[in-house]
Amino acid sequence: MAGLGGFRVRQELMDAGRLHRALVRMAHEIVEKHPDTGRTVLVGIRTRGVPLAQRLARFIEDAGGQAPAVGALDITLYRDDLTTIAPNPVIQGTEIPCSIDGRTVVLLDDVLYTGRTVRAALDELIDFGRPDRIQLAVLVDRGHRELPIRADFVGKQLTTRRDEVVQVRLQETDGEDRVLLLEKDGAPAPARRKAKGRR
């Protein structure tokens, strides 16, 4: 989702300030739910979940929690559409820094959509051990789930159409902090809808 190929920007959903505040708020929520964040493992789903996890770990420390371990998950080999997508996704590798047995794992991704990525991430994670529990944190929940999956920590919840794209752009991967709502070039202008904030 790096380029805009065939899509145009419909709306800026978050600027750098809002994105920052959303992550800080999620960090506070995590500290509140898990007083023992030193035993928590934050696992970012590649690509953009990883820098988000690193930032969240810093914000958790700022919020008075102990720094959690941070890992990265490449779910490519667990995708349910691996043999139907073309060309092959690049394999970047999974790095889990410590045993996850008996710990709380917080999975982190930029956008929660169909839930299929999270399903793949859960399967992969369970091959690394038996965590006490796995929770899910996402910067944007855009709806349209195809599996019974929900997020425990959400930066921003919105109502979208399936033909729209939510693009999270991060300093570390894209040179800027922004969340954009894209629509197909030439799509008829729909009646204005307000993005619904969670709080």
């Binding site: 667990y78 690049v90 970047q92 590798g93």
Partner: peptide, 20 residues
């Protein structure tokens, strides 16, 4: 070569099997 670099880590996992 880049794909092999990404896949090598699978061999060090506790469960050395992925469903790809």
């Amino acid at each position: 070569l880049d794909t092999a670099d990404g896949l090598r880590e699978v061999l060090d996992r506790p469960i050395k099997k992925v469903p790809a």
